[in-house]
């Protein structure tokens, strides 16, 4: 169990205590008003807040493989501007990144390296399979290419296209943000850091 989890648990316990203590005081308020306070402020879990913060600060690893890497670079540039979604800080070291965009075909020789880079990333971490090749092998169904990077690492979002345009990749990033927010505070999010 990570430090963050302990903190989340501690705060949740604290909130529950608060809720019990404040119950009487809240019930004295007007009926419609008390409900709003009870639902929105006190029951908001810290996990949600953490998830919200995580989704807006995705740091992708600089992990260019093939053609798709060029479109990934285009996404970071001024025209597409991934900074609008907080995903523009490409980190050269996987140890500083929490998002791996597998941009291109993964060969049999690269697969162990990719797995290792994934293992080096700190938790929680997410993976986007960018393009047809990393999603399912694409047009290269042969001895050299791993037929989908999901055989090596767990994938959160698949972006189709050969190569997908930067707008498609941005849509993938937005979908991932939605997923992070949806999972936030839940058991799945907890497993990610376990």
């Amino acid at each position: 169990m990570g430090l963050m989890d302990e903190a989340v648990d501690a705060v949740e316990t604290e909130i529950n205590n608060l809720k019990l203590n404040a119950k009487e005081a809240i019930e004295q308020l007007g009926a419609e008003f008390s409900g709003a306070v009870y639902d929105s402020i006190l029951t908001t879990k810290l996990g949600k807040v953490v998830g919200w913060a995580q989704k807006n600060a995705l740091w992708p690893a600089t992990f260019g493989l093939a053609c798709c890497a060029i479109e990934m670079m285009a996404m970071a540039n001024s025209r597409w501007d991934a900074a609008r979604f907080g995903a523009e800080v490409f980190r050269a070291s996987p140890r500083q990144a929490d998002l791996m965009i597998v941009s291109g075909r993964v060969s049999q020789k690269m697969a162990p390296v990719l797995k290792r880079i994934y293992n080096q990333m700190p938790e929680p971490k997410w993976v986007i399979a960018m393009g047809a090749c990393s999603s399912c092998g694409g047009i290269f169904n042969n001895y050299a290419i791993v037929q989908g990077v999901d055989r090596v690492v767990p994938v959160d979002v698949y972006v189709p296209g050969c190569p997908p345009g930067p707008e498609a990749l941005l849509y993938g990033v937005i979908k991932l943000q939605e997923k992070i927010l949806r999972e936030a505070g839940s058991e799945q999010a907890r497993q990610r850091v376990a």
Partner: peptide
Amino acid sequence: GFLHTGIEKT
């Protein structure tokens, strides 16, 4: 060889 795609064989 980390991007070997087997294009010639394919």
